[in-house]
């Protein structure tokens, strides 16, 4: 990480792209709610719901928060604690639900 480094910004998206992302977010939410009312293997639905939440998360973080276009170090500053938190949560759940006994 050299000093006086001026981050090379990729072109930020314009209002058109933002609206498209907004529409995609709404569609995913609609699909999620639809999934919720489907009677199917719970495991499958749960994984689909988690995946769609992750997709929305990444869309907002990547486009609305500009992580895809902005300096990569901001993304590191955000995703490292996120990974730590996910690891902590998984470890805690393993212990709480007696998977480690």
């Amino acid at each position: 990480m050299a000093t006086e480094h001026v981050a090379a910004h990729k072109e930020h998206p314009g209002p058109r792209q933002y609206v498209i992302i907004g529409v995609i977010l709404v569609v995913i939410t609609a699909i999620e709610v639809g999934l919720f009312y489907i009677q199917a293997t719970p495991a499958l639905i749960v994984w689909l719901l988690l995946a769609s939440s992750l997709a929305k998360f990444l869309l907002v973080a990547g486009f609305f928060m500009h992580l895809r276009f902005d300096d990569r170090r901001f993304a590191i500053l955000f995703f490292v604690p996120l990974l730590i938190m996910v690891a902590l949560a998984v470890a805690l759940m393993a212990m709480f639900f007696s998977l480690t006994r």
Partner: peptide, 18 residues
């Protein structure tokens, strides 16, 4: 440092794997 906290809790019965 974030991955060692339960060594304060070895006697609380977390289970062998933990």
């Amino acid at each position: 440092g974030f991955g060692v906290w339960a060594h304060h809790m070895f006697t609380t019965g977390l289970g062998g794997w933990a």
